[in-house]
């Protein structure tokens, strides 16, 4: 088993490090890069807590072998907010009361981002589909959906219209 040279762009920064190929993208993100905002809830692709964006698409980092993500643009929760501020989706999650225990929150925000990066006026059904791979056990789904709706309005410049 020889280490694999893992080169990728994470949150806009290039990374280049040797990784053992049996490690998951999740392990590299959390352990090697110290980006612990990405959570492990199940290790099976059921809960979505480890959601990151791979070339703009949401994936479960627990199901991706690290070398499979080599060469990709990876966005984790740490790469969402602008320097010193919050992304409108993060603002919306706070304002709508969509954050409870917080363990699903990073994954939810990234799932929402994957949607809103493509569609700024999503239907409720589209929002529900976008977060359907993410579990919230505090069962705050209503407020999470409200937050995504609010974020869409903020991002399309109608922040006060909701």
């Amino acid at each position: 088993m020889k280490p694999f040279r893992f080169t990728a762009t994470i949150n806009g920064r290039p990374v280049d490090l040797p990784v053992n190929p049996h490690r998951r993208l999740l392990d590299v993100i959390r352990d090697d890069l110290g980006l612990t905002g990405t959570k492990e809830g199940c290790g099976e692709g059921e809960c979505g807590a480890c959601t990151v964006l791979l070339n703009g698409r949401p994936v479960n980092a627990c199901l991706v072998l690290a070398p499979e993500a080599a060469g990709c643009e990876i966005t984790t929760i740490e790469g969402v907010a602008p320097e010193g501020g919050l992304h409108p989706i993060q603002e919306a999650f706070l304002e709508a009361g969509a954050v409870q225990c917080g363990y699903c929150t990073p994954g939810m925000i990234l799932a929402a981002k994957a949607l809103l990066d493509k569609d700024l006026s999503p239907t409720d059904q589209a929002i529900k589909t976008a977060v359907s791979g993410n579990l919230c056990r505090c069962t705050g789904y209503i407020k999470i959906i409200e937050a995504v709706r609010l974020a869409a309005a903020k991002l399309s410049g109608e922040g006060d219209a909701v």
Binding site: G45, G48, P58, V59, N60, N134
Partner: peptide
């Protein structure tokens, strides 16, 4: 199939 994350992969 699955959710969006599974469908991406």
């Amino acid at each position: 199939v699955g959710g969006p994350q599974i469908r991406s992969q």
